[in-house]
Amino acid sequence: MNNYKIKVNDEAESKEAQELFFALGAVWAQSKKASFNSDPMSFIYFNGSSIYYGHDDENDEDWFLSSSSGQELTLPQLRDLVAQSKAKSIEFLEPQDDGTYKLVNWTCMSCPPENFIEVPDEAELYVYWPHDKDYHFQSGQGFYEDGGWNLCSFSVEEIKKGDAGAEILWSREPIQEQGLISGADALRALAEKKNVQCSIAGKNDWTVDILTITPYYFIGMGSGQFQFRLKPRTIRLELEIPACGKNYKHGQLIWILNSLEPNEYCSVILDESDELPAYWWETEEEIKQVVAAFRGGIKA
């Protein structure tokens, strides 16, 4: 990115110039922060990633006038530069401490950190598939791989509902928690001795002891600070399926479950360095029976 410099005649111009440089991704060279600096200054320099300032004295004036200090801009020119950069912004996912991702719009005029992930056009979700130990962007009925969209066994809506077994790490649209009930309904359910769970709103942590929550948070002015739901019930599936393969031989064609395939299974020949999957079958007929059993058991 080019180096730039600008003269500022008062605090108002200084503040605007700083904000415009921040919009280009700049931070102060010393503090590494993108926050307004009220120190008196006559010149601001931008080296492509950081800004620093100079005073109205002979040394700083000579440096400002030198060609090595960068291209001189006026405030209108700097505004245009920022407008152009916004028009070229690209979406990236920024990793968060909890393992999820946050969407950020990054200007093409500076490079994002290496751990940022570029978001392809039309992407709605970024998910982790535990079975395949793989990460994919999802859109509609497709997943993104090798620069294009491919057909996926599960749609975005099915993934959001939890039907696909994928962990959602980012969603363009907020995901509505399933099965929430109002504070009033939660109180009624408790009176009927039903098992009600409670979480701080938006935290999705259902371990909060509901008996410590006062009525103020159920139906009073504090309602909305907690979320309530009936404790989810689990069902036990007993399926009759062919036994997994046992005596694997190197180079053997095996069949495994794969949620990314239209039929939800595929065949593979493992390399010597590949780890043998925990669950595999020797024939396509066997894997077909496994898939059919799972589908039938879950629907039932």
Score class of each variant (00 low, 15 high):
1 M>R: 01
4 Y>T: 00
6 I>A: 04
9 N>P: 00
12 A>T: 10
17 A>S: 08
18 Q>M: 07
20 L>D: 02
20 L>M: 07
25 G>N: 01
35 S>V: 11
36 F>S: 03
38 S>Y: 05
43 F>C: 09
44 I>W: 07
48 G>W: 02
51 I>G: 00
52 Y>I: 04
56 D>T: 01
57 D>V: 08
57 D>A: 09
59 N>V: 09
65 L>T: 02
65 L>D: 13
65 L>E: 14
66 S>Q: 02
66 S>A: 13
67 S>C: 01
68 S>R: 10
69 S>T: 10
71 Q>T: 15
72 E>S: 11
73 L>R: 00
74 T>R: 02
78 L>W: 09
80 D>E: 08
81 L>S: 05
83 A>W: 03
84 Q>V: 01
85 S>I: 02
89 S>G: 11
91 E>T: 01
96 Q>I: 01
98 D>L: 04
99 G>F: 08
100 T>W: 06
104 V>N: 04
104 V>A: 02
105 N>A: 08
105 N>D: 02
111 C>H: 12
115 N>D: 15
116 F>H: 14
117 I>F: 03
118 E>T: 05
125 L>K: 07
128 Y>P: 06
129 W>I: 14
130 P>D: 12
130 P>K: 04
130 P>R: 02
132 D>C: 00
132 D>W: 01
133 K>M: 11
133 K>F: 03
135 Y>G: 09
139 S>Y: 10
142 G>D: 10
144 Y>I: 00
145 E>C: 12
146 D>N: 11
146 D>L: 07
148 G>E: 14
151 L>C: 03
151 L>D: 15
151 L>S: 13
154 F>N: 14
156 V>Y: 10
157 E>N: 12
158 E>G: 07
162 G>F: 07
164 A>C: 03
168 I>N: 06
170 W>L: 14
172 R>C: 11
173 E>C: 12
176 Q>C: 12
181 I>D: 15
182 S>R: 14
183 G>D: 12
184 A>C: 12
186 A>G: 13
188 R>E: 15
189 A>N: 10
190 L>E: 13
193 K>F: 06
195 N>I: 13
200 I>Q: 10
200 I>H: 07
205 D>Y: 13
210 I>H: 14
211 L>I: 04
213 I>R: 04
216 Y>E: 15
216 Y>V: 10
220 G>S: 05
225 Q>W: 11
227 Q>K: 08
229 R>F: 12
231 K>I: 00
235 I>Y: 07
235 I>D: 02
236 R>Q: 00
244 C>Q: 15
251 G>W: 08
256 I>F: 06
258 N>R: 01
260 L>S: 05
263 N>M: 14
266 C>H: 03
267 S>C: 10
267 S>T: 00
269 I>Y: 11
270 L>P: 09
270 L>N: 06
274 D>T: 13
275 E>V: 03
278 A>P: 01
279 Y>M: 13
281 W>M: 03
283 T>I: 02
284 E>G: 06
284 E>F: 07
286 E>S: 06
286 E>R: 02
287 I>S: 08
290 V>G: 09
294 F>H: 12
295 R>S: 10
296 G>C: 04
298 I>W: 03
299 K>S: 15
300 A>L: 03
300 A>G: 05
